[in-house]
Design a protein around this nucleic acid. Structure first.
Lengths: 142, 142
DNA sequence: GCCGGTGAGTCCTATAATGCAACCGAATAT
DNA sequence: ATATTCGGTTGCATTATAGGACTCACCGGC
């Protein structure tokens, strides 16, 4: 019935997904990175229903990913530090999407703003500098 | 009504989420990284209903994230290269979860298998080696 | 061969999430 | 003053998810 069961889970991946695993959440954050702040702009860019967007935004504010700032009459949604910290997640996801999924028309790419060149592939690096593959990492309880 | 509308979307994040954005998908992949291959083990570790797990696994096989190998009577689910390539996504998510969410009891951590020390924080690096913040990246169409 | 147990699902039903469209009040524009 | 946008809320239809009962094939013991 209720969809989620992982809030104080031991696994950090599970806890992270409990916060940002919802259907539109990461896309909203992506748009927020791109400078979108207003309800209507999120709605137009994402093509999401307004009621869904309203509940998502409210949840995200409660979770501390966004905060609202009243500017004159209308309020703006802005990323908090917690939300901004998701940038590497989005970039890593984008890199995976670029290499493992096909766009139908033109594909946007994530670029270095200064050189307008693609970024380096994200690497997982140990404390001593070794680049790690998936067999080099473990998840340990305690 | 139908939930997803982003398959050949221009944005690689949207396309990636179309594949791995489902509720249990990334957790299944996390368990697959940990060496889980059998239906019942996924079911026990995740605590997910069996019918949900069955459809998720089938979808993931269709998407090319997993493949089945018939071993004697029962079949095993194993990660494909496409699925394995999600490792950096999981690690990045785990790092975000470690710093921005609180476990209720004991928290598992992602570690370097050789030294058993935590990993370095994932960094976004430009082609020329500069470490980038979120204001240093752009998404560009074309 | 017969029987119970287990693994891997399927089917049915209930509840939650999602989507669409219509409506609404306040602020803005004409 | 009136029309229009903005930022939602409400109601209804459809889909996804959860839980449990049930099936079916296989295996081990007798």
């Amino acid at each position: 019935m209720k969809r989620k069961c992982l809030e104080g889970d031991g696994c950090p991946v599970a806890r992270a997904l409990d916060v940002v695993g919802d259907w539109w959440t990461l896309l909203i954050i992506r748009d927020a990175f791109a400078g979108v702040t207003r309800f209507g702009d999120f709605q137009k860019h994402l093509g999401v229903a307004k009621n869904i967007l309203a509940t998502r935004l409210k949840d995200m504010v409660e979770q501390g990913l966004l905060h609202t700032r009243d500017v004159g009459a209308r309020s703006e949604y802005q990323l908090t530090d917690k939300g901004r910290a998701l940038m590497p997640v989005l970039v890593t996801l984008a890199q995976w999407g670029e290499t493992h999924t096909e766009p139908e028309q033109v594909g946007a790419r994530v670029l270095d703003a200064r050189s307008l060149k693609p970024l380096r592939k994200v690497q997982i690096v140990a404390e001593d500098g070794r680049v790690l593959g998936l067999e080099d990492i473990v998840t340990q309880v305690g």
